[in-house]
Amino acid sequence: QKTCLICGDEASGCHYGALTCGSCKVFFKRAAEGKQKYLCASRNDCTIDKFRRKNCPSCRLRKCYEAGMTLGARKL
């Protein structure tokens, strides 16, 4: 079983350049394409896991970029 690099849930494949679950794939697409700016209410070090991935979109998006996700990457 492969694990999502963002939240640790079961990965569905390589999306936008990183091994992710469906939830993180859709989140990244919407967040990266959108005009909304996300700000962390804490210290930009929130725990992003399967159960808390929706708590801080700022840290989740940062983790996506750190994992190498880009909109230009093709699905592998």
Rank of each mutant, 00 (worst) to 15 (best):
L19A: 10
C40I: 00
R52K: 12
A73D: 12
I48Q: 06
D45V: 08
Y65D: 06
R52H: 10
K37N: 15
R74A: 08
L71F: 15
C21D: 00
P57Y: 12
L71M: 15
S23L: 04
T3D: 06
G8S: 07
K37C: 06
K37D: 13
K29D: 05
C46P: 00
H15Y: 05
C56R: 00
R52E: 13
Q36E: 14
G13A: 07
P57G: 15
I48D: 04
V26N: 15
G72N: 08
K35Y: 12
A32N: 11
L5R: 08
S58I: 02
V26F: 08
K29Y: 07
T3C: 14
F27K: 01
G72R: 13
G8A: 13
A18G: 04
L5K: 11
Y65R: 08
N44H: 05
G13P: 08
E33H: 07
T47L: 11
L39T: 12
A32H: 05
C14V: 05
C4M: 02
K25L: 09
Y38M: 12
D49L: 03
K25D: 12
C40N: 01
F27S: 00
R52F: 07
G17S: 04
G22R: 07
Y16D: 04
K25F: 10
T3I: 13
T20I: 12
D45L: 06
D45Q: 15
C64S: 01
D45Y: 06
C4H: 01
C14W: 03
G8H: 10
G13C: 04
Y38V: 09
T47Q: 10
A31F: 05
F27I: 02
R52T: 15
G22N: 06
C24V: 00
T47D: 12
C24G: 00
D9C: 11
V26P: 01
C21F: 00
R52M: 10
Q36T: 06
R30F: 14
Q1H: 03
G13T: 11
P57A: 13
C14A: 13
I6M: 01
R74Q: 14
Y16R: 02
L19T: 12
D45R: 13
G17A: 03
L71W: 07
L71A: 07
D45H: 06
A31P: 03
A31T: 14
C7N: 05
C46K: 02
C40E: 02
I48F: 05
G17V: 01
T3S: 11
D49P: 03
T20V: 14
S58K: 08
K35E: 15
S23H: 12
V26S: 14
C24W: 00
A73S: 13
K37L: 08
A31D: 03
T47W: 05
K29E: 15
E33M: 14
K63M: 08
C24K: 00
C46G: 00
P57I: 07
L5H: 07
K35W: 05
G72P: 09
C40F: 00
P57C: 15
A73M: 06
G72W: 10
A32D: 13
D49T: 07
H15E: 15
C56F: 00
K29N: 08
L39A: 11
Y65V: 14
L19M: 12
C56T: 02
C46V: 00
A73L: 06
Y65A: 07
C14D: 15
I48L: 06
C4T: 00
G17D: 03
G13W: 02
K37E: 15
Y16L: 04
C4W: 00
C64K: 01
T47R: 08
G8N: 04
C40G: 01
C46R: 01
C46F: 00
C46Y: 00
K29I: 04
K25E: 14
K37T: 13
Y65W: 11
G13K: 05
S58A: 12
C4F: 00
C64I: 02
T20N: 03
L19C: 06
L19K: 12
